[in-house]
Design a protein around this nucleic acid. Sequence first.
DNA 1: AATGAATGAGAATTCATTCAT
DNA 2: AATGAATGAATTCTCATTCAT
Lengths: 214, 214, 214, 214
Amino acid sequence: MSYRRTEAVVSRLEDNRARILRCARDLVAEGGWQSAHIATVARNAGLATGTVYRYFPSKAELYAEVLSQVSSRERDVVGAIADGDGTALAKLEGAVRAFAARALRGRRLAYALIGEPCDPEIDQARLRWREKLGQEFVRLIQDGQREGVFRACDARIAGACVVGAFMEALVGPLAPEGFDDADAAEELIDEIARNCLALVAAIPKPNTYPIRSD
Amino acid sequence: MSYRRTEAVVSRLEDNRARILRCARDLVAEGGWQSAHIATVARNAGLATGTVYRYFPSKAELYAEVLSQVSSRERDVVGAIADGDGTALAKLEGAVRAFAARALRGRRLAYALIGEPCDPEIDQARLRWREKLGQEFVRLIQDGQREGVFRACDARIAGACVVGAFMEALVGPLAPEGFDDADAAEELIDEIARNCLALVAAIPKPNTYPIRSD
Amino acid sequence: MSYRRTEAVVSRLEDNRARILRCARDLVAEGGWQSAHIATVARNAGLATGTVYRYFPSKAELYAEVLSQVSSRERDVVGAIADGDGTALAKLEGAVRAFAARALRGRRLAYALIGEPCDPEIDQARLRWREKLGQEFVRLIQDGQREGVFRACDARIAGACVVGAFMEALVGPLAPEGFDDADAAEELIDEIARNCLALVAAIPKPNTYPIRSD
Amino acid sequence: MSYRRTEAVVSRLEDNRARILRCARDLVAEGGWQSAHIATVARNAGLATGTVYRYFPSKAELYAEVLSQVSSRERDVVGAIADGDGTALAKLEGAVRAFAARALRGRRLAYALIGEPCDPEIDQARLRWREKLGQEFVRLIQDGQREGVFRACDARIAGACVVGAFMEALVGPLAPEGFDDADAAEELIDEIARNCLALVAAIPKPNTYPIRSD
DNA sequence: AATGAATGAGAATTCATTCAT
DNA sequence: AATGAATGAATTCTCATTCAT
């Protein structure tokens, strides 16, 4: 009996923790950090405000975990592609596509994760994730350079450029607004993938333009 | 005498207005929107809180102007290059370089302008600017396409990619941290420029990789 | 136990809500709307400022409820008399007396309710109440007209006159100042009632005086 | 020259003082005490804010004078009627009519003066005026009582009732809203006058109703 | 463990009044 | 005398966090 009760409690605890995380994430996904109040999380989770603090010591830590949970999922997807078979070219394209496709499904969340800072403490987690995601792309680029299909360049910077390129095209102000149309989404993803590949692809001719600077 | 008095007063007023704007900008540059409180602006400007409201009707309007001031300067630089002489290739490279060089000088500010949302009212100004900046690049890309030196692609998306690429490389978490070294900065700018050009440059071979999606 | 706990909590909540309302009302009763600050209400209620906002979403809503609470009580008294038995004459006199007697007990409050505007939002509630109170008297006058004991006249205007007459006599600057003496209060009420009845009573002789106007 | 200059200055000073008073009054007349800010008065008068303080030591004193100026004009009108020839009956009716007619022309101002308190200091002036106005009516009623055409009653209370009656009917919430129609205004004034006369007129039959009190 | 009421440190904004020029 | 910029106390409202029950 005691065993079962413990089990039940543990399970309920787990439920609560998971529910809090899920509600916190949903809140961000819907209204950005702006609407991510602890009291709202608690209410949505069917708990008292104070209870949230039994599971997370502070708002910052709660959202740091939300961030890490959501983003590690993204990173895993990208990482799996990077670790999988295929040419670096195919894998880079696949990774960009995979990320873009997922981000498009939850743009408000993607935006919050990618572009919308908030509390400085939470922000650190955001930047840490963004860095890790970037490193997956750096890795892919380095692979491609070894294969000789990618330009010789600073892979770290090129990685940042790739990440920046697809993120901006996905959630930046030049990004298309609504997507009722699945085809339009598909087309956007195609285009983004092409741009990212072009960014790193080996270029036959030398890079000798007259440069103008500020 | 009356003239000089008027002049002095105007100049003091201008001083205050300018000083408020500068302090507001500096505050954002140092601590992001988070620390951009009216009271702090006032204190730093050596004024009383209420005085700020003589010059700006609300916090949102003050920061909208900070934003517009800072960013219109950037856009002008980019726009001047776009309007100037030279091939699209040279101009795109020049624009990326110019923007990058300036952004590197004030990265925290660049970050606030580029990546850090805040009050929704202020944010509108931020996104408007970002869109305008993006459009300058879209224009450049369209020029290059007409000249035949850039790939046939959706110029709008490519523009977003270019903007995202250099911004991320400049202020994203993969961007190098400190810059005591002017050479390092120069090298980063070069690298970023190369990446952006590659992104839009005409590619000789067709784009037929096996695609993997999620 | 759970029951008692719930009960205690509810009762404490009710206490607070009621206490806030009472303190808000007392504040108005003592110093008019002028001194009706949320912070003072909270302090007097032994609560933190923010706590008031748990119970009332804004100052306007708090005072709208103060108003409605206080004044609906008054209107109910008057309304009950109007709905009760008796001649219109007796009922009108009763209503005036009842209102006057109650108002005398809390003249500053009566004044705030009757004569003292404030925040436009709160004011709406004040005017709504005042109108409803007036309508009770309009109703009474119409009854009396049907009975033939009141003059034929615009009942709405006469109602306003009756309400204005007793209010002014109660809380206006011609009203006697202090009331240590219960008899004096009684005498004032009698006198007011007589005046109000005279105002609407049927007059035997025609109303044909030479008129002088401005 | 010095003489003329002095004269001009004095005249300009007088102009300023008068203009400030007028603008202050107009402001109250348009928007009530709510919008009666010193800065607005100054701007409307074509003066600097600080200049207002050369003529009036404080906002309260400025508005006390506005009040006294406006209201002494009203009181004079009523007083002139009271001092003139005619029966008390005719004079009371005339006074009520005169006041009502003037108040109808500037209802917003009348409301502010009659019903809308503000700063406690200004309020004192308001109440002083209201008292003086009331006393004119008390005087009239006492005259009528001596003539035997008015009821024997406490003239002070009856005066308050008369004042309250016409004020409420003029600016209270039961008062009609707009007046495009001069006839409607005339009719309202007639009705108010009848009510006020009824209030004090001698009543033939005794006053013996069964009384109900709270 | 859970509750959720209470807290109170801020943050933005207003406006009568002052005072150097 | 006039100016009007500067002042800063006062006020409303928010929300992460605590803690008695």
